[in-house]
Design a binder for these strands. Structure first.
Lengths: 127, 127
DNA sequence: GTAGATGCAAACGCTTTGCCGCTTA
DNA sequence: TAAGCGGCAAAGCGTTTGCATCTAC
């Protein structure tokens, strides 16, 4: 279904920014980073590009409880998201304890998957 | 700091709808339910009312990964949120396994709190 | 009677879309 | 050279605010 994609500078810069980041980036953060290398970049292009990359399975959408859309490379191994309550940046951290899937809860609810977001202080902010 | 509140029909109807619900309701859902009893109700009133109720500590804001704001009575005991992947409704379910707080993760991250959202099928939808 | 609350519409902020000129293949 | 892409501006959509009116007290 995926249409033919062209190799553009915008796509490369945006992908690179995501690949370098220590965790998922919001469109706004991505726009800030990418704009430095592409001054005429429009925010709409960022939105369209992340949608394409997501369609192509190169990146994944991460939704944290703040409601903002964040993206990160799909290639990262399974992990949790840690949101710093001070600097508000989001990091990838190790998986840690698991939650049982396909388990039936009292009341007849069947869990298919779950999402955990950790909140606290990142190494820089705890100082 | 809380200003004097007046006892209005709108406030009563909105509170009642939240109190009856099996889980947190979005503003849209709340508006739908409350409108049946208050045909001239405006959506802005719902937004203002939930903000007031939240300020007064009567209800709490629940943010699920879909980014929508939901509200539920603050009096409910601790629980998880279960989001049905079929009917999209959200329910309160028992707490289940806990995640350790105040623990330091590898890398120097300190967890202050965490949020878990469970996804799956509700009793009605699994049939 | 009066401060607080409501309804309506305009304003907002984030995201998406339309249009059209530009670029990649 | 043509279809995909990017930039810009307008449109959407959920949420908030301004304002005149209404109502609880």
């Amino acid at each position: 279904m995926t249409a033919k994609r062209r190799d553009t500078r915008q796509r490369a810069v945006i992908w690179h920014a995501l690949d370098e980041a220590p965790g998922p980036l919001t469109v706004e953060e991505l726009f800030g980073v990418a704009s430095q290398q592409l001054p005429r970049l429009g925010i709409a292009t960022v939105y369209r590009t992340v949608k394409m990359l997501e369609e192509d399975g190169e990146i994944v959408l991460v939704k944290l409880p703040d409601g903002l859309s964040r993206y990160e490379p799909a290639s990262r191994e399974e992990h949790r998201h840690f949101s710093c309550t001070r600097c508000t940046r989001t990091f990838d951290v190790d998986l840690g304890p698991q939650w049982p899937n396909e388990v039936e809860l009292a009341g007849g609810f069947v869990i298919q998957h779950h999402e955990v977001t950790l909140f606290g202080l990142c190494p820089e902010c705890r100082q």
